[in-house]
């Protein structure tokens, strides 16, 4: 198995990870490095375990009934499943954006301020204003919402809601952002804005994105991992995966010959 991400110091490393839902094994012996320099895309057919594996990276599976994770996952060399690991702290460092935008039924401002408040990142109202503005700016949303920060986050378009969720994720200044099909409910323009945003965030955060859109994976990522039936089949430079994949299973999947 090829685990080399071609990066000197990986931000996250997973070694021999197995995940079970009850008796059923959803992830089989997956080892992979994720670096901060690159956007990493996870691709593969529905049910192959992309979301399951992604959720391992910030222990979201802890909240799933019957889910059991084996193996070792490190963030900056620290075992994230160690008993000393503070899970709330971990999820601030490893943020997540979901498929369906899920803003809180609160104001736009409060949506972004929620995390920083929880983690005590602002000492004053002015501090918080600055954090909120900077997160909204980095999410490419500021100009659209600066005059309506008090309005409800749920009263925005899908694309705006998704960028609000990204703003919420980056407001706590995470180190890693996990995105699970963040554009699947968005039109091409909104999708392009999210992709542009991902490109701008690259380098500052380690970004992992799950996508079913091959063109999107090709556009936004520099590394691509192909999962199939719970295993990591191939992990390589995105350009290599999409022009000359090594494994037949990868090729059959990306060229539309799967199943």
């Amino acid at each position: 198995m090829n685990t080399a991400a071609g990066s000197p110091v990986p931000k996250m490393t997973a070694r021999n990870v197995n995940v079970f839902y009850g008796q059923k094994q959803a992830i089989k012996d997956v080892s992979i490095d994720v670096s901060r320099e690159h956007v990493t895309a996870f691709i593969g057919p529905s049910g192959c375990g992309k979301s399951t594996f992604l959720r391992c990276l910030n222990r979201m599976n802890d909240t799933v009934d019957g889910a059991r994770v084996e193996g070792r996952i490190e963030l900056d060399g620290q075992d994230i499943y160690a008993s000393v690991m503070d899970v709330v702290q971990l999820r601030a460092r490893v943020g997540m954006v979901f498929q369906k935008p899920n803003p809180f039924p609160k104001s736009i401002y409060e949506n972004v301020a929620y995390g920083p408040r929880l983690h005590g990142l602002a000492r004053s109202r002015a501090d918080m204003d600055e954090i909120v503005e900077s997160a909204l700016r980095r999410a490419g949303l500021w100009d659209e919402v600066k005059d309506r920060l008090g309005e409800s986050g749920t009263a925005m378009s899908g694309g705006q809601q998704q960028r609000l969720c990204i703003a919420r994720a980056i407001a706590v200044d995470p180190e890693v952002i996990l995105m699970d099909e963040p554009c699947s409910a968005l039109d091409p323009i909104a999708t392009a804005r999210i992709e542009e945003l991902i490109d701008e965030l690259r380098g500052r955060y380690a970004i992992v994105i799950v996508t079913h859109n091959m063109q999107q994976a090709a556009r936004v990522s520099q590394k691509t991992a192909f999962f199939h039936l719970g295993t990591l089949v191939e992990y390589d430079d995105t350009s290599a995966i999409f022009t000359n994949p090594k494994a037949t299973r990868t090729k059959d999947y990306i060229t539309g010959r799967y199943g």
């Binding site: 091959m214 063109q215 090709a218 999409f242 022009t243 000359n244 090729k251 990306i254 060229t255």
Partner: peptide
């Protein structure tokens, strides 16, 4: 079709 891999080549 947005061909990829050997199709693209």
């Amino acid at each position: 079709r947005a061909p990829l891999a050997d199709d693209l080549r």
